[in-house]
Computed example of a mutant assay.
Amino acid sequence: MKFADIQAVIVDLDGTMVDTLGDFEVALNRTMADLGLPGVDRAAIERTVGKGSEHLIRSLLAEQLRRPEVIGCGEACPALSVDALYERAWRQYQHHYLSINGQFADVFAGVEDSLRALQGRGLAMACLTNKPLAFAQGLLAVKGLAGYFSRVFGGDSFERKKPDPLPLLKTCEALGTLPAQTLMVGDSENDALAARAAGCPVVLVSYGYNHGRPVSSVDADAWVDSMLELV
């Protein structure tokens, strides 16, 4: 796949390079157990992941609090609300996620070979994710992908997250490239909207999460079944 004048590549992490649903499932279910709430199913995580950990936790807390067994607990339960539970949930989630980061996750087929080929072409490369930076750095390291990126930015690296264009613009600035010369590779509408607003060309992988909707319906320059199609 050829894009004229591309000098750099920005790559998303969850759902693009690494299948992390297993990590999310374990960490979130341990968190819910700590809070005395029902477990979270994998489909709910897949629909919700991608907009940052705060959104993930708040959305899933709200979903769990609507479960009949929670609503029907009556006076036996303390007053429960997302706001009341969020701070404790966030602390427990950080603890659990960091303790298992990467253990239940797998690098998608073709990812490392494609990164190696792109790096071999002399392209500047950055990882940009809505995942907290510490989580992202740890995952890239444990999966052997950290060495391909000169820059790594997370959802807490800038004032706003994707789909806002700010993270892409700041990443281009850090790489020293113009947006029009910087390819965004992602798996979701968040990546595409951010890229379009920033002026970056964008390619979406077909196997990611995209909030449970087909990624083929998202406006992009191309869609691929493997990152190897980029090279």
Rank of each mutant, 00 (worst) to 15 (best):
D113R: 11
G212T: 13
M184Q: 03
R47W: 07
K2P: 04
L80C: 14
A89E: 02
A89L: 01
S217Y: 04
P214M: 01
E69R: 02
H55F: 06
L115F: 13
A62I: 02
E46I: 13
R121Q: 15
G186N: 03
V49S: 05
V218W: 10
D225M: 10
E63W: 07
E46C: 14
A192L: 05
D14A: 08
R151V: 05
G176A: 05
A124D: 15
W223A: 00
A109I: 05
Q137K: 08
H95R: 15
A124F: 14
G212S: 13
Y148H: 15
G52C: 09
N130H: 12
L228I: 06
S226G: 12
S206R: 15
L145V: 08
V142S: 12
D41W: 01
Q7W: 00
P167I: 04
N210I: 00
L13S: 05
M125H: 07
P68I: 08
L56E: 00
E112T: 07
C77E: 13
V11S: 13
S217Q: 14
G144Y: 05
G154C: 12
R160S: 13
A84F: 07
A27N: 10
V9S: 01
K143M: 07
S81W: 06
I57W: 07
Q94Y: 02
L37H: 13
D113E: 15
D34R: 13
R58M: 10
G212Y: 07
A141N: 11
P163A: 09
Q137T: 08
T129E: 02
G72I: 04
L193G: 04
S226N: 07
T16R: 00
V107C: 09
F3E: 09
F104E: 15
C73F: 13
A76L: 15
R58F: 11
D219A: 11
A76M: 14
Q64W: 01
A220V: 07
A124S: 15
D34G: 09
F24R: 04
A126K: 02
A194M: 05
A195I: 06
G102I: 00
E46F: 09
F149Q: 12
G22P: 11
Q181S: 12
E173P: 08
R121I: 11
V215R: 00
G147K: 08
Y93I: 06
K143Q: 09
S226Q: 10
P78T: 10
V49H: 01
A136L: 04
D5G: 15
A222S: 11
G50H: 10
L168V: 12
G120I: 12
N210W: 00
I57N: 04
D113W: 02
M17S: 14
Y209S: 10
C172S: 11
G72F: 08
A146P: 11
S226C: 10
M227K: 10
R67T: 09
Y86K: 06
P179Q: 00
V18G: 04
R30L: 04
D191H: 07
A141G: 08
S216V: 10
G144W: 01
P167V: 02
V224Q: 08
V224W: 06
T31R: 07
Y148I: 10
D164G: 06
V111L: 05
L128R: 01
A126Y: 04
D225L: 12
L28C: 06
A126P: 01
M227A: 12
A105W: 01
V82D: 07
T129D: 03
S206H: 12
